[in-house]
Structure formats: C-alpha cells, structure tokens
Write a protein that binds this DNA or RNA. Sequence first.
DNA 1: TCAATATATTAGAATAATTCTAAAAAGGCT
DNA 2: AGCCTTTTTAGAATTATTCTAATATATTGA
Lengths: 147, 147
Amino acid sequence: MTPSVPNRETTDYLESRIRAVGLRPTRQRLALAGLLFQAGHRHVTAEKLHGEAMKRGIRVSLATIYNTLHQFTAAGLLREVVVDTDRSYFDTNMERHHHFFHEDTGLLEDIPSSELELKNLPPLPEGSEISSIDVVIRLSGTRKLPL
Amino acid sequence: MTPSVPNRETTDYLESRIRAVGLRPTRQRLALAGLLFQAGHRHVTAEKLHGEAMKRGIRVSLATIYNTLHQFTAAGLLREVVVDTDRSYFDTNMERHHHFFHEDTGLLEDIPSSELELKNLPPLPEGSEISSIDVVIRLSGTRKLPL
DNA sequence: TCAATATATTAGAATAATTCTAAAAAGGCT
DNA sequence: AGCCTTTTTAGAATTATTCTAATATATTGA
C-alpha cells in the first residue's frame, strides 16, 4: 500500500511529538526534528545544525535554528549543556546523565548516568532548590602511542 | 617605623606573587591582584571586576582586565569556571572544589571539596586524559516562606 | 641615573555568537 | 475560501570578548 510514500510513520511520529508540546509542525521544525531525533542521541550547536540542514538541502535560516532549539528546550525535547563559553550545545538525551567534553575537538559525549555517582551532596543554601546537577569531565587529547 | 606607609607587607606579597609567575608587577596588575586576592576567595566576571576597580578609583581599561584575568589564569593564580554562556567567571580558589550556581542572581559559590565526592568514574575514551572535572549544582531561588 | 630594550596598557575597531525587528509566509479553524 | 494567529526570515542590533597599533611603563646594564 502506498509504497512510494517514504517514512510515513516516522514523519507522523515527529509531527505528533511537536504537536504534543504545543508547537505547530512546520516544514522547518519537522526537518530539524528529523535531524535531531532520528539518529540516536546527539549533541549539536546552532551552527552545526544549520550546516547539516544546508547540506541536506533544507532551507532554514539561522534565526529559525536558534528559535527552534530554544523552543524545543523550553518544551523539554532538548536540554542545553554549558561547556563552552563561545558556543551553546544542545543535547537530545533527556535522561539524567553527564558529559565528557573533548577540549581539543569540541566534541561532547554522554556518560551514562549509571556509571557515575555523586556522594555526599552538601546542604543547599537557604531558600534554594536544585535545578540541575551538571558534571563535565574535560578531556585533553593524548598522543595515541607513547613517544 | 615608616608609620604612614600602608599595607607594605601586603603589597610586597602581591608583588612577589606576580613576579613569581613571571609577570611584571605593574600598577594595574597590583591593583587587580589586590581586589582578587586580599579578601578570601572570590568569583568575578570581567565586567564586575572592572566595575569594582572603577569604584575604587583604579584606572584600568577593560582590555587590561581581560588580559590580566587570562594571564593570571594561565599562570595558575586563577581558574576559569564555565557556568554561563554569556559571561566568563574566574575563581581565585585553586583547590579542588565544585560550585553552586544561583541561576537567578548569577552568583557563583564554592562547594568545599570535602563535602562532595564522585564515585565510580567511567573509563575514559581511548587516548584522552582528564583535564578537569567540573561539578555545577544549579540552583533556582525559592520563596523564603511557603505560600 | 639614564638610555636602550622588552613588556604592558589602552582606545577604539573588529569579531562572533546570539537576539531582535518588523514584514512576509504558512498553519489552523470555521 | 477567508480570517486570525503563529512562524519564518533577512538583516540590523547587541554583547562579550579579542585584536591592533600607538603610547606608556618597567627592567637592565653601563
């Protein structure tokens, strides 16, 4: 049946996810959701996502990339990870987890939550509550083989 | 003797710290070191430090603030803490420790290292080594009294 | 102490990521 | 279809930071 319609199911899935958070499934948002959510967990910057979209012939302005990343974040589809003062990173993995950050390449990588635990959390300052706990293990490259 | 020379000892201390890392103890660097290192541990942004300097009548350009913060960081007198994409924070506490970040006020606060521990660090990706481990507990304000 | 040399400071221009603006386009409802 | 709302967008604006190249200050050695 309708053998020439590609990825119907997938598109429906993206559309419903977008609708579910109260946003209109526009061409741009569907395309970006495709890039973000169809290939496992990802870490993107605005510029990189824009580049990818261009490469695939999706016409989206950079302003829309920023709008969409922020709307998705506000909607709980993405989370922002602060690791670099120059660039914002967005993570599609919403489970509780932490990150490796390769300082030389700018690559950001998930650490599965199970592997790392925090012990002995200190008492919080009066009148505040935890919004999130972010652990970043910064890595520097090392030559592969000893000199 | 020389009763009217104020803080001789302190100034000497700052001067020797600056010299010790191979920098010339200029008027600006001495003044900034004074603000940074004479009142316990601090967290500053370039803009805030510049504001403080102005308030005390120290004439320093913002460019010099940036130069100095980076030189002090490279020299191991300061450490940069990445908690905000919009602003760089510098911490005068060089011991191993982590941070509370008050998202509403932008206040950054040390967590003494002893209180918080990390268990079960994951294996590192091949060919990398740890440059630092940064833990940030982000806090949101709460009304002081329950409604 | 003073000149010669190296290093610092600075104003202002330049840069780069991000946000804003307001006008045109697309989505959704009846 | 037609109307109203939400989106997209180009380009201007903003903001933190860096760069530039000209001037000033620190250091060294005679």
